[in-house]
Design a protein around this nucleic acid. Structure first.
Length: 516
RNA sequence: UCCCCGAUAGCUCAAUGGUAGAGCGAGCGGCUGUUAACCGCUAGGUUGUAGGUUCGAUCCCUACUCGGGGAGCCA
């Protein structure tokens, strides 16, 4: 069982100290959701985020869900309602007095999870724990919780394992709300980073019929009637009868497609869902995950590593600036020291070293560290080896480059013989390893020489005609280029300290898991 | 897929080969400008499923299902 718990609804509410916690100031337009009409109907409605950042004085309406209700007999009776709308980490405290017409009938019956609208005045709080609160002039209940005794996410600590079974409600907890906001912020930062550097965002296909995307079990996409499937001469399913007239699958990578755009737009990236039908049961794998894949023309492996490092540092910096409330929460409740760790990542250069040197370091280390598996040049590094390098030996992100060609994909560029004094052929591949997560990025310089590419395709027993359009790129104005793939959920894990990848995606898909 | 561990109240766990307890949550009451509050009372469980051993199984055995940790695959 996981030891980490999530406190569903902490009673604490109120704004952080603005000077230290809110260096990022959101724009002041807050009332309208989409249309001017909406704003016209409800001009005083503001989000909790903006209410907490406002000065005392104005009359406002806030709408959200009750996190906690606390009652007091003071002043003849009053209730404290912590109301959250998810726009920021904290709830705002609404104070409802017994002179409200529905005080006895409704307000004192509110429970965690009820949806409410509160009209009132923003005032400085008389109590400790928050500087600002709403003195309510009206509380309207929009939605009750049918039976508080069976409400799945009441005000108490829950394990992440339990909340995974309540995925439709877990985002109401402070942990999963924070994850959702961080995920959004990282996604926005991703687009901003690339846009600022003249990259174009390419929507590569989700469905692919190429069957040449390389490693990984794929999910089949078919409209054939499985109970009454057309057969070919061999008695196998006849995909000529299928929707696409050939076997089709969900993509395992947008790389091959995005390379085509790279060879015209120079700097491109794809960012979208990716599917692997592997029977993987780990805290770092999903059957459906989001992958970021930039591709740069006129670039080599060093450029690729530069890009990866700049990207990671950019999005972390942006995250720390824009989401100090949630990041403080992760630092305090999920991983102690998270903020220091992330600042260290931003402030120090990633350690780059050739695979061949890494093997030497690991072989030396294996005299003391007790590895389960031996380290030898030519075989892929085990998780324990990667973890040792990034968590123990260097204690920072590590970029390993120039791997033996036999353990890497066909499209990776063959290095000159003798690179890094390696005992055999290497390719210009790179893995970015980070503490806690392991492999965050896998990338390479691509093989731009057709004859070398063809030799690799043959060598690996692949069917050359399947790659006709990919090979065309090498026939018509080929150029050096490189790119990488980054697991977006692993990035979120790295930035939040969340230990299980199933807790950083809204609705995780994994073997035997697709309930929601 | 492999190795290890687990499944008992809404949640987290405890327990004896003779049909089960606590904490939290929930409900009610008390106290309080409250804050993961405190005090009292109440409700709530065919002990994951299917078999087997036994006079008798929550406990012992087998299979299955699901969950967790690690490994492989990778991002």
């Amino acid at each position: 069982m996981g030891g980490d718990c999530s406190l569903t609804h902490e009673g604490r509410s109120g704004p952080r100290t603005a000077s230290t916690r809110h260096p990022y100031h959101p724009p002041p337009i807050v009332r309208r959701i989409g249309t001017p009409d909406h704003g016209a109907r409800d001009m005083s409605w503001i989000t909790v985020k903006h209410a907490l950042a406002a000065d005392p004085g104005p009359s406002v309406t806030i709408k959200g869900w009750i996190r906690t209700r606390r009652d007091s007999k003071a002043d003849g009776g009053l209730s404290f309602l912590a109301v959250a709308d998810g726009t920021c980490h904290d709830a705002i405290q609404a104070v409802a007095k017994n002179d409200l017409p529905n005080y006895e009938s409704e307000i004192t019956r509110l429970t965690t999870g009820c949806a409410v609208e509160v009209d009132g005045t923003l005032v400085e709080s008389k109590g400790k724990g928050q500087s600002l609160e709403i003195q309510a002039t009206a509380v309207r209940v929009l939605g009750w919780v049918d039976d508080p005794d069976t409400y799945p996410v009441p005000q108490k600590r829950h394990t992440f394992e339990y909340l995974r079974e309540q995925a439709h409600l877990r985002v109401r907890t402070n942990t999963f709300g924070a994850v959702a906001r961080v995920r959004h912020t990282l996604a926005c930062a991703t687009h901003r980073f690339f846009d600022e550097r003249d990259f174009y965002y390419v929507h590569t296909p989700i469905i692919t019929a190429s069957d040449c995307e390389g490693a990984g079990q794929m999910f089949r996409v078919s409209t054939l009637d499985m109970a009454n499937c057309p057969r070919d001469d061999q008695g196998r399913p006849d995909f000529a009868e299928d929707f696409f007239g050939k076997e089709a699958h969900l993509t395992v990578s947008g790389q091959l497609n995005v390379e085509t755009y790279c060879q015209a737009l120079s700097r491109v990236y794809t960012f979208g869902p990716t599917f692997r039908a592997e029977n993987s049961n780990t805290s770092r794998h999903l059957a459906e995950f989001w992958m970021l894949e930039p591709e740069i023309a006129f670039a080599d492996l060093a450029d690729d590593a530069d890009l990866a490092e700049a990207y990671i540092k950019y999005v972390i910096t942006d995250l720390l600036e824009r989401r100090p409330d949630d990041m403080d929460f992760f630092d305090q409740r999920i991983e102690k020291g998270l903020l220091d760790r992330l600042r260290h990542v931003v402030d120090s250069p990633f350690r780059r070293l050739p695979y061949t040197e890494a093997v030497q370091i690991l072989q030396e280390a294996s005299k003391k560290a007790k590895f389960e598996y031996p380290v030898e040049w030519g075989s892929d590094l085990q998780s324990e080896h990667e973890r040792y390098l990034t968590e123990k030996h260097f204690e920072q992100p590590v970029v390993l480059i120039n791997y033996p060609k036999q353990i890497k994909a066909f499209y990776m560029r063959l290095n000159d013989a003798g690179t890094d004094n390696a005992p055999a052929d290497t390719v210009a591949a790179m893995d970015v390893l980070v503490p806690g997560v392991g492999e965050l990025i896998g990338g390479s310089q691509r093989e731009e020489r057709l004859d070398v590419l063809d030799a690799r395709i043959d060598e690996m027993g692949l069917h050359k005609p399947d790659y006709w359009w990919y090979r065309d790129l090498r026939k018509y104005g080929t150029c050096p280029h490189a790119g990488f793939g980054l697991g977006f959920e692993r990035l979120i894990q790295f930035c939040t300290g969340m230990q299980n990848i199933r807790d950083v995606i809204p609705f995780p898909r994994a073997p035997k898991q697709a309930e929601f």
